[in-house]
Design a protein around this nucleic acid. Structure first.
Lengths: 141, 141
DNA sequence: CTAGGGCTTCCACTGCACTGGAAGGTCAAG
DNA sequence: CTTGACCTTCCAGTGCAGTGGAAGCCCTAG
């Protein structure tokens, strides 16, 4: 099939499919005499894999690596497990970071209620954000 | 003070400070006859604000906007509160997404234990990631 | 024969917050 | 006088996953 039909069947754009080929996650297909790309069912399966792996949070570089391992040393099980583990750890870290940030924002937000705009220090841009900064007379250096 | 000292006092690089000036979060300072930037204490305070706002998850564009509001219409309280609220909502969304993704990865990870590499389907790149795909004989279209 | 839709390549751009490097000016110490 | 640290500007690149557009070929229908 041509690239347009593959795009329709996978829900991607033709642009994205060509980009995936250049990124090494989709093998270069056969060409028709006209130069048009000619895909088989394998391309549909491959793009399904790429989508599934992306949904698991893997980058195109990681997906490409899994594919390479698969092609050279057979089943990439161990590689994939390691990858998933490190992604899980990564996600844990990021979730913890965002949760802490969320708490910080909440703290700022609620502190805003206790501040009187009248006490707003013109030397500071916004005391809601920077309430821990008390403007002091410039130290005589 | 010159840019190098400001950098030392704020823990930023001179590159970053010039970048902040071009990004509109730090006003252009006075210049010495030599052309060197000449900063006062206000620059230290401003950069502290930028850091605090960044720590609250605000982008440079948002920080610039707060500064602009502050300069034109006075205290940017309402603007800042709105911004913080929408950031909190944003964070909630992203935390939920990452948590769901974390659960997915865990599910894949644990499913890997139940799969026999011997049943590894060569038509699929990796069944750990794509276990829901059962390769079927290519439909005779 | 022409219009159109689909395809080809290549290059540039998006957003974000920087970072690197080149070419050259300034200033104080030795 | 020279060395070296520090400063200036401007341009380009980083990472990620695409997206946009231009110029031009292929193919079919009217």
């Amino acid at each position: 099939m041509r690239i347009g039909q593959l795009a329709a069947r996978t829900g991607l754009t033709t642009k994205t499919i060509r980009f995936y080929e250049s990124a090494g996650v989709l093998p270069a297909p056969a060409r028709r005499p006209s130069g048009y790309r000619d895909y088989d069912e394998g391309a549909v399966a491959r793009l399904a894999f790429v989508k599934a792996a992306q949904a698991a949070g893997l980058s195109l570089a990681e997906i490409r690596e899994i594919i390479t391992v698969r092609a050279s040393t057979g089943a990439p099980c161990q590689h994939v497990l390691t990858l998933l583990d490190s992604h899980a750890a990564d996600l844990d870290r990021r979730i913890a970071e965002l949760t802490a940030l969320r708490a910080d924002v909440e703290r700022l937000r609620s502190r805003a209620g206790t501040l009187d705009p009248a006490t707003c220090d013109p030397a500071v841009v916004c005391q809601v954000i920077q309430a821990d900064v008390v403007t002091q007379p410039v130290p005589t250096t």
